[in-house]
């Protein structure tokens, strides 16, 4: 008699690969094989996971239409099923999958829309913590400011697109209304963060993306400013800092030498 391990192995393989046929010994009430009954499980798995992707990537679905989305998602489900029962994590590889999906090649911005939606999802479920307040930063003595380092908020995500992806995303979520978009108009750097309840997305100014990346990697304010200026000479330090703090990008700042967080200094 077939053991449990072999039985579940055969069942699992046939679930995602219809070419394998229905494993023997799976029967209806008369003891005879019943492919239609096995198909219920196949359908539950594929349709269920497709619906999960649809819920996690609503703008991608709105752009390509439900039929196209289902066909695309089903291929991903069969080739890359979730690796965890926590389905809010499912779809981390969807943007890269779309980028390599030939029938979607006419929508070159689509992978970046998926990246925005993925970033939104991660920010939505990230750990809660209060962001750094502007007043706390203002209280730091001027002589310390150039060497300050910042810790970013756990919900912070950055997305860089060579297309106006933020504009396209906004047109395709909620009450958004699709309109003409000039794909050659330049790209979007997008800051995604959830300092309190709501996920917020904003377009970043010139050099802002490199600046936040540098801070996140542990560069001091002065070092990060140089990095940003190298990337784009239009970079404006005080405007960026003001906007980033207002957006809730950071949780605290500190000096390298000093173990105590500057924001706690009174």
């Amino acid at each position: 008699m077939q053991g449990l391990a072999d039985r579940l192995q055969g069942f699992a393989a046939a679930l995602l690969d219809p070419s394998l046929g229905v494993p023997p010994g799976l029967v209806g009430p008369d003891g005879e094989p019943s492919p239609k009954r096995f198909a219920v499980y196949r359908n539950n798995v594929v349709v269920g996971l497709t619906e999960v992707l649809k819920a996690n990537f609503p703008a991608v679905c709105r752009i390509v239409g439900e039929e196209f989305f289902d066909a695309m998602a089903r291929i991903l489900v069969a080739s890359e099923p979730p690796t965890s029962p926590i389905l809010l994590e499912y779809g981390a590889g969807f943007a890269d999958f779309i980028a390599g999906f030939e029938p979607a090649a006419s929508l070159p911005y689509l992978p970046d829309i998926a990246r925005i939606e993925r970033a939104w999802m991660e920010a939505y479920h990230a750990r809660d913590t209060p962001p750094l307040e502007a007043a706390a930063l203002a209280a730091i003595p001027d002589r310390h400011v150039p060497s300050l380092k910042f810790s970013v908020h756990p919900s912070l995500r950055l997305v860089r697109s060579p297309f106006p992806a933020l504009t396209i995303w906004r047109m395709n979520v909620g009450d958004g209304v699709p309109g003409p978009v000039d794909l050659a108009a330049g790209g979007d750097d997008i800051l995604v963060v959830r300092p309190a309840a709501e996920v917020e997305l904003r377009a970043m100014p010139p050099g802002g993306y490199e600046f936040v990346m540098a801070l996140e990697q542990g560069q001091s304010l002065t070092e990060a400013m140089k990095t940003a200026l190298t990337a784009d000479p239009r970079f404006d330090l005080s405007g960026n800092i003001r906007d980033l703090v207002a957006a809730g990008t950071f949780v605290d700042c500190h000096l390298d030498q000093e173990p105590e967080r500057m924001t706690r200094m009174k």
């Binding site: 539950n44 798995v45 099923p81 029962p85």
Partner: peptide, 25 residues
């Protein structure tokens, strides 16, 4: 029911054979 196999999670409540081996698992 079972819902994972190797690294895959199927998001469905899949059936088990009612045998002594399954019972002890």
């Amino acid at each position: 029911a079972w819902s994972t196999h190797d690294t895959a999670y199927f998001d469905d409540l899949l059936p088990v054979p009612y045998t002594a081996e399954t019972l002890s698992r």
